[in-house]
Write a protein that binds this DNA or RNA. Structure first.
Lengths: 132, 132
DNA sequence: GGGATGTGCAATCATTTACTTGCGCGTCAC
DNA sequence: GTGACGCGCAAGTAAATGATTGCACATCCC
């Protein structure tokens, strides 16, 4: 049940989305459909090189895709990984929910047992699952 | 249409999930239902204080909740924000999809027009939003 | 060809961030 | 009470990261 941190794809997406400037870039990109690092720079408050580096990270994460036209390199957003990550999060949340429900039941049972010796917590009632 | 970066809640969640150690903590926490910083440290390769700091960030992001029992401070996972962020991502992905579809249509029209003057791109067909 | 425009590479800088160590204090058990 | 256990605060360190500047190279337009 435990140990599904998930690999590189989700990891990279989360890392990429964590930065405000990159989210801003994505937002502008999605707004204009396609753009180059230079045109994006015009509507932002950082240098072109900063935008270029961010775009590289975004492309490595699979959130955008770049292609050459003439002498310019245009980028478009790619929704795929975003959808995947959203699903991953949803599954994780569902897993947490299930786990919480189980714990709640155990806690209520422990509470029942605790009523027999009032004023003191009987914490060791719960096996602590395990660890390793 | 543009400008929905979304505020603090999503921002904090993304930032919190971006770190591998924090995801590991969340995973262990979800596995054991509840745990303290000390018990978590036992199954990880960082110091207790590191875990404490991570838990503070996770709690600020609303991903976990801590409460005192006796002299110990236990934590449980809270799925709420995770679900919200997943939905946010899904909406964003859908928005991207819609935008891509629109651009594709425009591009095809531009391609049609481009057939009349072969060998040269008619790029200025798209208003380019603007650029200061 | 020649100037303008757009790109890519590389080094540098400053801030942030993850992690550590040390210590004082509250809480439980005997 | 005394000792053990767990927690919290604080300062400090080292690495990652966001951002900058400078310059060389390629491409477009006249």
């Amino acid at each position: 049940m435990s140990g599904n941190i998930e690999g590189p794809p989700v990891e990279d997406v989360l890392g990429a989305l964590a930065d405000p400037t990159r989210r801003q870039i994505l937002d502008r990109l999605a707004g204009s459909g396609e753009a180059t690092a230079t045109t994006l720079t015009a509507e932002m408050s950082v240098s072109r090189q900063a935008v270029v580096q961010h775009l590289a990270i975004l492309e490595a994460a699979g959130l955008v895709k770049g292609y050459r036209i003439g002498r310019e390199r245009r980028f478009i957003v790619v929704p795929r990984r975003l959808t995947e990550t959203a699903r991953w999060m949803d599954r994780l949340a569902a897993q947490w929910d299930g786990r919480l429900a189980a714990i709640k039941r155990i806690a209520e049972q422990a509470h029942q047992a605790g009523l027999e010796s009032p004023g003191r917590q009987k914490e060791n009632e719960q096996p602590e699952t395990d660890r390793s």
